[in-house]
Write a protein that binds this DNA or RNA. Sequence first.
DNA 1: GGGTAGCACTCGGCACCTCTGAGTGCCAAT
DNA 2: ATTGGCACTCAGAGGTGCCGAGTGCTACCC
Lengths: 339, 339
Amino acid sequence: MSEERRLQVLRAIVDDYVQTHEPVGSRVLVERHGLAVSPATIRNDMAALEEAGLIQQPHTSAGRIPTDKGYRLFVDRLSTVKHVSTPERRAIQTLLEGAVDLDDVVDRSVRLLAQLTHQVAVVQYPSLRRSTLRHLELVPLGPTRVLVVLITDNGRVEQRALELDRAPDPSVVAELRARLNALASGRRLAELQPILADLPAAFPLDDQAMVRTVVRVVEETLAEDSEERIVLAGTANLARFRDDFSSTIRPVLEALEEQVVLLGLLTEMAEDSGGVAVRIGHENLHEGLAETSIVATGYGSDGDTVARIGALGPTRMDYPGTIAAVRAVARYLSRALAG
Amino acid sequence: MSEERRLQVLRAIVDDYVQTHEPVGSRVLVERHGLAVSPATIRNDMAALEEAGLIQQPHTSAGRIPTDKGYRLFVDRLSTVKHVSTPERRAIQTLLEGAVDLDDVVDRSVRLLAQLTHQVAVVQYPSLRRSTLRHLELVPLGPTRVLVVLITDNGRVEQRALELDRAPDPSVVAELRARLNALASGRRLAELQPILADLPAAFPLDDQAMVRTVVRVVEETLAEDSEERIVLAGTANLARFRDDFSSTIRPVLEALEEQVVLLGLLTEMAEDSGGVAVRIGHENLHEGLAETSIVATGYGSDGDTVARIGALGPTRMDYPGTIAAVRAVARYLSRALAG
DNA sequence: GGGTAGCACTCGGCACCTCTGAGTGCCAAT
DNA sequence: ATTGGCACTCAGAGGTGCCGAGTGCTACCC
């Protein structure tokens, strides 16, 4: 009983099941997948695969479907690398080049990925901590209210309002802004903390409280990884199949709304195969996503990852196709950010 | 046959059906709703209501369910005004007061509304055109790239990157920024257009092209109503009922992703009853939303509407409760923006 | 004239049945 | 190791009959 053929059988089962969404039996397997042996032989192989926990039977007289473990093996060792077609590639390129700002790039990317994969697409906004500060602005909103605005090199803008104890002198605000910009511009945001700590001492005693408040707000803004924004598209694709998966929709939608959960999942994903990370079913330690797989990878302006992008759908998804699409969009997204 | 009782019957049918999601027959109607007549009498009334197109029978031997027209009559003339409970009110207040900036206020509001109504909640970001400009910033992103940042009085920040033909002189940029702020600060964004038109003439010929580019981008940003952002929450509530409505989920999700559609619906809604607008089923001229109702109202910092907030769910929703929740959240949201 | 009681009628849904066919596991033969 | 054959299992489709909810109608009462 050749080990190699058994894996071929597994691959055939995954391919077929992904396409038809129906348990696949020994006969269709030999008919549709050019296996040069008889159904009986396949049955023996399938028994072994089931023994190994790679496939399972929904009920006695039905065909087999892959388990999470089966999909895992398929993804790691059996799937052939797909590439997105040239027209698709061109479409991606032109679409992303037409974007006017960061929001627009992200928005287009996520829609695009949803359309390419027919899954739910997720894009995380570029992380603040790894970007370089381009400009910092203090804008008075009222007598004692000030808006702090951070602008990064990749065009992300973050704002935060703060309330002061008493109305500050405009000239002091102006000086603070000048000093902040002198100190901070061009630095990575993650490096800022020690630099800013000394700033209050440079001001007259009366103003130090105000300066400290502003510095604290800036630091808070940088620290809040939970502030990281996420954008979704293609949630309607979850309802593509009226049958079994439809009962699973609700917990998935709930998980998608919990951006914190989603962020955690994205960032925790180790990139295994060719820079793309795949989490299958129960591997996502979140009960609502037990029948859901996530394919994700990082993107960034100059080689290093500033954020992630991914696709999410039922475990029975087209992994090679999804992986290819995620990789392609990530690549063009990186390029669009750099340019 | 008293007209008044017939309307009572309609109200009872709506109440019951909203609660049970099952067609309601003449018997349960008298049993559960304290109507002091016999089922036979009710049947006559129901026949009349059906004749009038207010209720309908799914099939011959079933009870009645309200039609869109029936819900409309209910909302306009029969529903009793509900108020949110005092603890709920207090919860809304404290939650919204804890918000740190505009994004946070909007985010909290939409989640809150979704939780209160058990529907999908929608909040439109405050419109740019009606806000006052607080500050305008030009930030160089590269030799020929400039980021234009608009900051409004209610804390909204809008940015747009632009590409120049040649690298501008920093001093010219500084002067342009100063002039723009002098001209535009404190004005309503909608008034800006004529004011900005004269600006290029004030600059040396060499720089006029650059100035014109910047002005054009500012104008574009203001003009783009389609840029208006929308935030959703509670989409998982769509999947609350596994049965009939679940087949309708997909088109609804698709409509929700088309922010343009949603924006159109929100802005077109006339406010009828007590400041809250209700669109029922087919009244939404969008085929995906034929079984969906929307309850919406405006909110704004000082009395006038700067944007809208609403809830969306199956036509068989609890209208009085939803209306009350939308109104309450809108009120506190307005207050949070003003404060 | 409006309300009521009684009655015949309709029809969806449930329980029950059978039958079919897909699919399996095992065994003996190659 | 592979294969054909065979007995076995079982979900799902299709058919049947019954029940009960609900109706519309008509005759009757106040």
